[in-house]
Design a protein around this nucleic acid. Structure first.
Ligand SMILES: [Mn+2]
Ligand SMILES: [Mn+2]
Ligand SMILES: [Zn+2]
Ligand SMILES: [Zn+2]
Lengths: 136, 136
DNA sequence: CAAGCAGTTTAGAACAATTCTAAAACTGCA
DNA sequence: TGCAGTTTTAGAATTGTTCTAAACTGCTTG
């Protein structure tokens, strides 16, 4: 579980073309050295501060965007002005609890989507997002 | 097609608990007296101005939110800071062309989604959104 | 083990989308 | 026609995010 320092987060950053700076490593630990989860820039910023690794909000945004561009994170947009970053980059879908903003994963391998029309011509498929919206 | 004044937009507004003011009727015409489409607050604001029915931006936002709350419109969030209002409130899904921000409908009746897990307990299903993201 | 330089961080300004405020303009009804 | 409540509006405020420009740091090279 927690506590085990990942063997080489730094290497992972380097191979994404990112220098393993103090700030990036701290954020990477908060993101990748635990189970998959969903963060917002604000929540990650607060978490870093709480862990006594203060990082400026601008750096949190920069880092989330860089990690996302490097394929280390995926971005999920569920509501206007509510963008989550997801440490689970594999195929899966989401429950979104509208009443309290919670986001939960569910595996996509049990889900079959059939009969999707072909993409408009001149376009290629990028991703299929399924968001199951529920309320309490 | 266009040109035929809808018999009773005003009644439709009244039965949604909204007074048929000049502004609301103008926006309702732009929204409902043509084929289904997707607008942003800005695009609708511009359209109203072009049709010589200027409405303040605050009223456009108020009205879109009221129409949405009344079930006359549905809101579709495709990207951070990119919220569309959809005049098609029936079941259907969307193609989103990421490279240029276009949103297209596709019918949901040919699409089967099977194996969705049950909603987390204590919650009831609100809607299932499928967004097929494509790029040029 | 210095430079030195590109890459990185930061505070704060700037921006874009949206909501709020409070005052003026309407509407429906008494 | 007078009022009370509703709606609209300009502009201020808020929120989430990106930009700017200056300070700082990690890495390579001499
Ligand atoms: Mn972004
Ligand atoms: Mn809204
Ligand atoms: Zn997820
Ligand atoms: Zn649609």
């Amino acid at each position: 579980m927690s506590g085990a320092t990942s063997p080489d987060l730094a290497a992972r950053l380097r191979s994404a073309g990112l220098r393993p700076t103090r700030q990036r490593v701290a954020l990477a630990r908060a993101l990748f050295e635990r189970e998959h989860h969903h963060v917002t820039a604000e929540s990650l910023h607060a978490e870093a501060k709480a862990a006594r690794n203060p990082v400026s909000l601008a750096t949190v945004y920069n880092t989330l965007n860089q990690f996302r561009d490097a394929g280390l994170l995926r971005e999920v947009v569920v509501a206007p002005g509510r963008s989550y970053f997801d440490t689970n980059t594999g195929h899966h879908h989401h429950f979104y609890v509208e009443t309290d903003g919670e986001l939960h994963d569910f595996p996509s391998d049990k889900v079959t989507i059939e009969g999707l029309p072909v993409p408009p011509k001149g376009t290629k498929l990028s991703r299929v997002d399924v968001i199951v919206r529920v309320r309490r």
